[in-house]
Amino acid sequence: MAEPKRVAVLISGRGSNMRALVAQAKAYEVVLVASNKPDAAGLQWAREHGLQTWGHDSKGIGREDYDRILSAALEEHRVGTIALAGFMRILSPWFVQRWSGRIVNIHPSLLPKHRGLDTHARAIAAGDEVGGCSVHIVTEELDAGEVLGQAEVPIELGDTAAILERRVLAAEHRLYPAVLNEFVLR
């Protein structure tokens, strides 16, 4: 397997966490920014900042077939660690097994609470006093891998999901790079 410090960041949109990972890289190097949406705004930002990019539309391609194409691109760039940063696709069991223990993800809740989508609205509806984010190792079970780090964000009176999301995103931008800098040294 390639050097763990050679990181690929997988995105589907604007790439705000990807930008934080690039800006705060100390122990790792982002060698590729990849997306299942070739027109993702984050890819354009990455290109403008001199990063290698790869985009391949996942529409109309079976999950494992797509993941094999993606895996080949990662191998071509000698990637050792994969950081999911708003990559809005569920990875196939084949891909998760192929890259076992080398895929990390940022999730906008304090896992194991509120796995999946709509985490901020669900945290507010549940009456939680704090929300937050978690960095975890990706396994075949959604948002269930080993938690590597968390950051709490207070839920304040009058918070909406959108307001809480902005505060949690700021915490993500601090937490994810810090955890990734430690993870690649394992």
Rank of each mutant, 00 (worst) to 15 (best):
Q44M: 13
L21S: 03
E29F: 09
M1R: 13
G116E: 11
R115W: 12
A2L: 09
P177I: 04
S12T: 05
L148T: 03
A34S: 00
A41K: 14
A171D: 02
A161I: 05
P154A: 11
S109P: 08
V7I: 00
E146T: 03
S58N: 13
R186F: 05
R47Q: 15
E129Q: 14
R47P: 10
D118N: 14
L175H: 04
Q150D: 03
E172W: 05
T81L: 12
G145S: 00
E141T: 14
A126M: 03
D118A: 12
V138D: 06
A151W: 03
A2G: 11
P4G: 08
G60T: 07
Y176L: 00
H56L: 13
L175I: 09
L110A: 01
L74R: 06
G127H: 11
N36S: 02
V168Q: 02
I69M: 07
I163Q: 14
W99D: 07
G62K: 10
R174K: 15
R19N: 08
W54I: 06
T53W: 05
A41N: 14
L91F: 02
H120N: 03
K26N: 14
R102C: 01
K59M: 06
L164Y: 01
A171C: 10
I106L: 05
A8F: 02
N17M: 05
D118C: 10
L10N: 04
H120W: 04
V135R: 00
M88W: 05
G80P: 02
F95I: 04
N17I: 00
K26R: 14
S71Q: 08
L157M: 15
E156Q: 11
E76P: 13
R102A: 01
D57E: 10
S35R: 01
M1T: 11
